[in-house]
Design a protein around this nucleic acid. Structure first.
Lengths: 129, 129
DNA sequence: TATAAATGCTGTAGTGGCTACAGGATCAAG
DNA sequence: CTTGATCCTGTAGCCACTACAGCATTTATA
């Protein structure tokens, strides 16, 4: 069994975040030692790591929980996980696309902006009717 | 002068958001009619629209306020606005890049996942040590 | 003119996913 | 035996809204 600091190191999840996950019921409450301190099993640390990976991939906490609850086995669950990932991938692609448009808009805004102008075309166009 | 609903329509900022901006001191308090209702001038609506545009471009509220306070004139301010936009553009590009990596990681995760497996490789790799 | 629907008001709480304390208790190392 | 590291609970803050509740007033329709 491991103290919360060790669990944090091994899972990559910050200590405060681990306690937050517990408070919110995102992970199960760990056992407590005689001193009242949290004691984590390998398995529980594995769950934290799992959540961390999902979060790093941009899944919501809710999705991460759902994926975790699918366990590691079974065809059916594999399909569900695949579908969730696919949906998520699509939303990632949408985000990329909208950021690309943002990039383009910013580039255009800045392109007009040559020093030596009395009026700033960038600010002007933000102000336009 | 325009009621808040009209100001919302003309600026594109939701009514609740306009009141929120006022509460937070992001925009100045508008005049009030005899009935106690907010009354917006064209100029105030212009400010709301300005903030809206900045937000749509992904600037923070803080940045939007800074840009707004630069006014429309002067070389120096143009340079400041340009620099802020440049910094913001860089952060947009960073976001795009990290989403691209995410996309790639998700694609790889899903690529391994062929139906017919007893174990789901997607879930398995999320669970891996 | 009576009524119904729209619009406005204030105030408060919730969202997601943390992060950052304060103020204390306990533990491990030298 | 002291120092510093780690742990505990509880609460508040972050960002930028969004969503009510519960009421007052205004505008449109019958």
């Amino acid at each position: 069994m491991f103290a919360i600091g060790e669990a944090s190191k091994r899972s990559g999840v910050a200590i405060e975040t681990i306690r937050y996950y517990e408070r919110e019921g995102i992970v199960a409450k760990p056992a407590r030692g005689d001193n009242g301190r949290r004691a984590y099993s390998e398995k529980e640390i594995g769950h934290l790591r799992f959540i961390k990976r999902c979060r790093d991939l941009g899944f919501t906490i809710k999705d991460a929980q759902a994926l975790l609850s699918l366990g590691e086995q079974q065809d059916e669950n594999c399909k569900i996980a695949h579908d969730m990932s696919k949906a998520h991938l699509e939303s990632v692609r949408e985000k990329i696309e909208s950021l690309r448009q943002l990039e383009k808009a910013l580039e255009e805004l800045m392109g007009n902006c040559e020093s030596g102008n009395v009026q700033c075309p960038l600010l002007e166009s933000l102000h336009a009717d």
